[in-house]
Structures are given as structure tokens and as C-alpha cells.
Design a protein around this nucleic acid. Structure first.
Lengths: 211, 211
DNA sequence: ATAAAACCTTGATTTGAATCAAGACACCAC
DNA sequence: GTGGTGTCTTGATTCAAATCAAGGTTTTAT
């Protein structure tokens, strides 16, 4: 959803402020509209029976989420929580659908958005199934660097505990792999910040090399 | 895409017959239209550097695939191959887009279809990240049973080698887990067929129980 | 029908990462 | 600053599943 659409629909939507750690919706809930991040960041995630978590998305300002039940008529396939204080706009289903039918371009935007998510998921499935933790972590650092203006110094936007839930491992393993990467001269780890010292090496590692 | 749309557009589309094992498109190719399965079955999959495969979808008659690049304007995020002799309709991008703009209901169908795939992917990511192989295999058998009229006798639609690529493991592990499930009295394995003997037990196992 | 090619099973071994268990460090409020 | 809480690291151990290896079976093509 683009910024101008956001402007247009703001008067028929509901704003709500969420505290850090507050749930926005739960897996299995009925979805009665879509959500738009105004400020802050949120995660969409699944929990296993024994409490392990897998993060599916992390979204910031401008992103929409929670559409799947609107289009598909079932419940939320995952849960959502604010990672920090966040302002979220909720747009009720019927208003969103009306908007969609009266604004053809919005439908195309939505198709493109869902397609991007499908692409992201294929990357995530590939990572979980075909790559080992060092390769996944290297790929994540490179993605971060790309998002942050290709700087060598990259700041971690989430805690390492959250990071382990995002790439599908444990905090202990993250710690050990960062250390090995440091020993190999690929990165230098600071608190909340990583200095990329060998981008080529990281790229090779991310494409299934060994550490 | 529903059957009646299929009928409508058949005269502006191209049919092609694929042999078992023949590639339909490769990851990274430019996507210039959408594909519709008329007969047979196809898989959409990713390959790792060292040749391991992860299947993302298996589609049969009536399913469309290959839309992501059409809506998103990039390349195919995965590859596609015929699992058996298959008849596939190719609908060029511009014709599909025109159809989409002149048929609002088609757009909604497409949004629902992509949403269903997103939901399927969340299930797959959850399985790969949070469940062990026995749980994934149990879940797959239950899904098959549901698809096949809830019969206790379920026929495997793909080889065990392909099955291992679908649930993210190896043929050896599939073999061993089937055997353990048999020993536990959950199933009885025949050639190309599984007899479900303890549905409750399988359900419990699929929800993260131990074998 | 027969040969060839896939595919499947079983056993022995290795391996990557999880788990368990302490400590160390960083960040916050007061 | 100081105490406390939550987060991170490091080491020892366990575990699920991959890999390697070899024999057996089914399927496919000719």
C-alpha cells in the first residue's frame, strides 16, 4: 500500500497505540480487516507447542499486514506482536474491500505486495531447508547491509534472541557463529553493531560455503 | 483461477505438452506470463548449490502457477518441472493483465489464490523450523487422507524420493520413520499406499509428539 | 519379456546444532 | 554510582538427522 492511499483512507480507519511486547492478533483469530504500520516495528510469527518461535516477517512504517484472512476468509495463520512502541492503523474489512473495488490500482498494488511476500517466503524456506546456520546468518548480514545504505558498519535492528528466532536457530548458536565469523576475519562484532570486513567472503559463505 | 475463466481465455493462450521430467521454467528466468495446469502434475522447487532439492508446491489440473514475476516484475524465484506427462496452458503477460483489468472478479480470485499460497508457506516454514521429521510426515499423511476423501487407505501421489524433497529430509530418513510409525501401530506401509491404522495417534504425533 | 534405470531399505558412522548449565556483561531505574 | 534484570557468551553433552555404503526391489522403456 502506497503512502497516498494511506492518506486517502485515514479518515475511515482506526488508530491504536501498542506497547512493546503487546499482541496485535493471535494465530487462529478471525481477521476482520487489515493493519498498517504507522510507527514502530512489529513481528509476525508462529509458536510451537513447546514455546519455540519462528519469525515470519518484521514490518515497519508503511507496511500492511494481516490481509490473508480478508482475501481468503479464514483465520490468521500466525500471530503478531509489537517489537517496540508502535502506532498501527486498522482498516475494517468491508471498507477495505469497497476501496479495493473502487480503486483498481490498489488491487494491482496488493497483488504485487502479496507476490513479494511469496518471494520472500521461498527464500526463507530455501534457507531453512537447504542452508546451514552460518550461511543463513551471512545472508542476513548482507541483507541488512543492503538495507542500510551498503555501509560496512551494520546495526542490528533486533536483539540476538529475536535474530535467532528469525533465522531459525538458538541464541547460543548465533553467538558461536558470530565468533567463528570474527575468527575468520569476515566481521567484527560490537554491541548492537557488526562491522563487515570481508564482504566477498560473507557472500561466498551465504551461498552455502563452510565456515 | 476457476474453470469458466479457463474456458473463456483458452483461445488466446498457448498449449504445450511436457514430458515427465521436462523443465517448464528455471529459477532466474524472466516470467512473461502465467501457467495453468490442464492435465498431469508439476512441481515448483528450489535447488541448492550441491544439488539438494526443496519442493515448494505440487500442482495438478486447474491450478495456476508462475504469477509472481507477472505481478512483481522480477524473475522466477523457483524452478518448475513436470512430474509426469502434462498439458500446460501458457497465458502471455499482457493478455493476462488485460483480462485482469476487464474482469474484477478475476482479481479477487487471484488475491485469494495468492493468500492461500502464503498460508501454505507459513505452514511449511513452521514445519521446517519447529517440527521434527516424524511430525512433518504425520502431518503430510493426514493432509493426504483429507484430500482423499478421509479414507484410511491413502495412496502416495509421489515417489518417496520426491516426498523427502517435499518435507525437507532424505529418502533414508523417510524409510526409517515409516518403519517406526509401523512399529508403533500408527500405519501400515504398502507399495505406493499407506494404511492409516491410528488416526488419533498420527494427529498427536503431527502436533509435535515424539515417536 | 527383458534389460536398464530408478527407487527403496538397512546398517554404520559422522555431523550440525540443540540443550543444559554457569558465568559475564550491558542496560535501566533509582 | 549501585543494584537488579534481562541478555549474551562459553563449555560440556546429547540428539536428530545426514551421509556413506551396499544390497534389494520396483518401474519404465525398448
Amino acid at each position: 500500500m502506497s503512502a497516498d492511499h494511506l492518506e486517502t483512507l485515514s479518515h475511515i480507519a482506526v488508530r491504536k497505540a501498542y506497547k512493546r511486547g503487546e499482541m496485535i492478533f493471535h494465530e487462529g483469530d478471525k481477521g476482520n480487516g487489515i493493519y498498517i504500520v504507522e510507527t514502530g516495528r512489529i513481528k509476525v510469527f508462529k509458536l510451537s507447542m513447546d514455546g519455540k518461535e519462528q519469525i515470519l516477517h518484521i514490518y515497519g512504517p508503511g507496511h500492511t499486514f494481516g490481509e490473508v484472512p480478508v482475501f481468503q476468509g479464514k483465520n490468521f495463520p500466525a500471530s503478531s506482536m509489537a517489537l517496540e512502541p508502535a502506532g498501527i492503523i486498522f482498516l475494517p474489512r468491508d471498507r477495505f474491500v469497497k476501496l479495493l473495488t473502487t480503486t483498481p490500482a490498489l488491487g494491482m498494488n496488493m497483488l504485487a505486495d502479496l507476490s513479494r511476500r511469496l518471494r520472500d517466503f521461498t527464500v526463507q524456506i530455501e534457507a531453512l531447508s537447504l542452508k546451514e546456520v552460518p550461511a543463513r546468518l551471512a545472508a542476513y548480514l548482507l541483507t541488512l547491509s543492503r538495507e542500510q545504505d551498503n555501509e560496512a558498519r551494520v546495526s542490528l535492528p533486533i536483539s540476538k534472541a529475536q535474530l535467532s528466532n528469525l533465522i531459525g536457530t538458538t541464541p547460543e548458536t548465533i553467538s558461536r557463529v558470530f565468533k567463528k565469523m570474527g575468527d575468520a576475519g569476515l566481521i567484527e562484532v560490537q554491541t548492537r553493531t557488526i562491522e563487515i570486513q570481508d564482504k566477498e567472503g560473507l557472500e561466498e559463505l551465504s551461498e552455502s560455503g563452510r565456515l
